[in-house]
Design a protein around this nucleic acid. Structure first.
Lengths: 248, 248
DNA sequence: AACGCAACTTGAATCTGGTTCATTATCCGG
DNA sequence: CCGGATAATGAACCAGATTCAAGTTGCGTT
């Protein structure tokens, strides 16, 4: 059994190598210039070997996005347990998302690209499933925040909606603003400034609209900014130290 | 002069032919299977001629998306003048968007694809500009709705925000929900039902949160649905009859 | 220690499809 | 009707993803 096991491990290790190296390529030269043959070469393997792991280039891209997303997801896990009001936790979700994406521009670009129906459709079902699952912890963390809020009475639940569905609004606001912020030239064309401050303000408005206690004054931008800073500080302290993976 | 003028017209006509035929291709076989040479052939032109019009395939895709977007934009123009309360007008925007995208799935897919930084970056600046401009009327219409709302006192403006920026929240909610709704399998994976009813509910919550009068009860789903139906009916009556473009 | 088999690796060849460009055709003003 | 400018043509080109026939490797067996 042990040889089989060892092989599996080696295989997994190599897959990581490919993914890691591909991320490096993308960071250096952009998604556009990632080439299967060059990637294989850079890892000291033949092109064909790459295809042992990934059925197609799209598959590889999903795999990379999945890896990123897993890392992103871990950032959300401590949130439900942070010493914050339920509403602040919800904002912590928004802030975590903003900060992660701001500091990983490649991740957003890639995720955006693979989420495209064109690319999505040409990846294998397994990879698609893996990507969807990598996002699940975020979904769960957020749902938990909502559930707790309802339990503590900060939010009076909406009978027809599940926790996820209540959280979905906030999530969509995020996704939409990221898209806007990344659409090169759109902000300028439409004279929108500082998208993430705006996102924060609208998130607060939405929470108010859902009746999520304590309501705050959305005109008080100073207060909003200060609260965000407080929450960010706490998030930094609670950050999982990024598990630096052992070099092989 | 007239011959030069005629040539320009012919050129424009042909460009339309290409775009139209490409849309047809996409509708029939999907974005994935659009091929430059086959498209040219289908229009009875040589491949090279296609490249007289579009510097690259990406350019062509932007052109198609732009054409669609223009049509989409016209649907928003009557909204600021509809006999509705300002808040209902804002909902009319949301509904128009939902309905247009629901009935033009290809449009969303294409727009999503070309908005991707990868594709966007490899199109020519002119095409990018044209696409951005095609969306401007929507932006203006929505801004106007906000401006009117502030003028009539339905919405007490937010000193630090421009009308566009106030509208941006609602817009992002839309964009985000469309993304979610189109991400094959995500809704199921995260157990979210009926995304567009949800979008409506969250839009109402956001408007409430912005203090947009008259506030409504977001728990009253029946009322929300009925109001949406009323607005939709009005929108249908005011629909610009789609200008059926003369066949050449 | 040698053998045979299965599984894996290799990278040159294949294939697809976007893009180019030398050639040819068209059009226009004189 | 001529000469040159302008545009159309489509076969050739090229990049790069994907394949696959040939060669290796490593394991268990004799």
């Amino acid at each position: 059994m042990s040889t089989q096991e060892r092989k599996r491990r080696e295989r997994e290790l190599r897959e990581r190598l490919f993914v890691r190296e591909a991320q490096e390529f993308i960071r250096r030269e952009g998604l556009l210039h990632l080439q299967m043959s060059r990637l294989a070469e850079a890892c000291d393997y033949a092109t064909g070997t790459l295809y042992q792991h990934f059925a197609s280039k799209e598959d590889l891209l999903l795999a990379i996005a999945t890896e990123d997303l897993k890392r992103r997801a871990t950032a959300f896990q401590p949130i439900p347990h942070l010493p914050l009001s339920s509403r602040e936790r919800m904002l912590a979700v928004v802030l975590t998302d903003i900060d992660f994406i701001s500091s990983h521009p490649d991740h957003f670009q890639l995720l955006q690209y693979v989420s495209t129906e064109v690319i999505w459709a040409s990846a294998s079902p397994d990879r698609r499933k893996a990507l969807a699952e990598a996002g699940a912890p975020i979904c769960e963390a957020v749902s938990q925040v909502v559930t707790t809020a309802v339990a503590t009475g900060d939010l009076s639940g909406i009978p027809t909606l599940r926790p996820v569905e209540i959280a979905a609004g906030s999530w969509c606001l995020n996704v939409g603003m990221h898209s806007l912020a990344h659409a090169h030239g759109l902000l300028e064309a439409y004279a929108v400034r500082d998208p993430y401050a705006l996102l924060l303000q609208h998130s607060q408005a939405l929470l108010n609209g859902l009746g999520w206690q304590p309501l705050i004054d959305i005109r008080d931008t100073r207060n909003i900014a200060e609260q965000a800073q407080r929450i960010r500080a706490l998030l930094r302290d609670n950050m999982q130290p990024v598990v630096s993976e052992r070099p092989d």
